[in-house]
Nucleic acid binder design. Sequence first.
DNA 1: TCAAAAGTGTTTCCCCTACACCCATGG
DNA 2: CCATGGGTGTAGGGGAAACACTTTTGA
Lengths: 231, 231
Amino acid sequence: MIDSPPTPPSPIAVAVDIVVFTVADEDLKVLLIKRGVAPYKDAWALPGGFVREDESVDDAARRELAEETAVEDIYLEQLYTFGEVDRDPRDRVVTVAYFALIDAQSVQILGGTDASQAAWHSMYAAPELAFDHNTILELALRRLRYKLEYAPVAFQLLPEEFTLSQLQATYEVILSQPLDKRNFRRKILNLGILRDTGRTRSDGPHRPARLYAFRQERFEQATGGKVIFSF
Amino acid sequence: MIDSPPTPPSPIAVAVDIVVFTVADEDLKVLLIKRGVAPYKDAWALPGGFVREDESVDDAARRELAEETAVEDIYLEQLYTFGEVDRDPRDRVVTVAYFALIDAQSVQILGGTDASQAAWHSMYAAPELAFDHNTILELALRRLRYKLEYAPVAFQLLPEEFTLSQLQATYEVILSQPLDKRNFRRKILNLGILRDTGRTRSDGPHRPARLYAFRQERFEQATGGKVIFSF
DNA sequence: TCAAAAGTGTTTCCCCTACACCCATGG
DNA sequence: CCATGGGTGTAGGGGAAACACTTTTGA
């Protein structure tokens, strides 16, 4: 209220942590890293690291993500900032959490990497994590489920072209509940954000499925710039 | 991927900025502070300040808010974290933005304070602000409008007991659009989150209005712990 | 010809919307 | 008695949910 002398910038480190989701094997997976250093040495943790002085927080998240996955064009969104005093037992670290969605196919690279300590874990059977990362993970899941209902995020988890059954399976895995096939298809198609590629894919001893692609532009004009950023 | 040496915590300052909304005079108001120090000396800015080493980020926001308003029990929610490199022309400052909702009555205190530099401004005619605060403000408005539709935030802007007309006016000011009286009343009452106090209030040469109060518990059980935190 | 997934319509119900008049009071 | 805001009901349309069978293919 009254002008106080400017508080000296505090010695607080700023980090980013990223919840990377993918869907594979009919399961929702999250990318975890085994820590090689204290604190929480040998514990699983979310990928992340400190923000450098010459990069924005968003850029730090993108950089860390690229270091772990070597994939471009990743859907990345800020989740929440965690700033409890004792969330890191040693230093004072405030972390900005992000969540990312990637197509399992395009990152197969990582699963088969060298002796690195990164691995996909089932979201629904995640281990105890370092720091407050379990809290972050839970929030990410809530946010993902929430967004699924009104934003076209499921497409980020699928390859360019996909079948409606794949899409439905993605929804079902994330929401942990079965959906009605006819209602699902009608709803999605009525949104007008899918393009029928005209192609089909044969999968086994049954009728081939039509392949669809996501029409980004269509969605953006439909929302009228309503969402996109945050939420 | 490969264990890199832990990056040394970077010299980045962490701040909080708070968008304090209230509704008064049939307008949506935001609390602004005239800066007494460089950078942006004499410019209007959001209330805020640096996070101290011994307090959580949330606590810093509550503290700054208390310093400006001297009101307790304020609705406060984290909004977004802004981390562009050059958002502060001098130092590297990452800011965690919050938004707060308070009842205009209970903070009249501030409006009539000493020669302090704090003042309510119309949200819809806000001046150029310091730093990236106009961006923060816009995001806060979007979030407020968004939340209004599915969360009981309007009650935070009203006194304990209020009339349905007051409530409707609050919605209208925030959404910048008129609402149908009958539909509004039916919808709100059907939510079952209001308690009819049995009292009425006379306001002028017309029928007195029923006074209602918000039933917090009812809402919490209705949402089944769905929202509350973030979103 | 069989197994397995793809694809397809209809009915019901509820919620949202649009819309206009009487009521209670103070001056 | 009049001006002012408080308070009320109904009909129609649109989207969500429930529900089962036919089609196409590979083996």
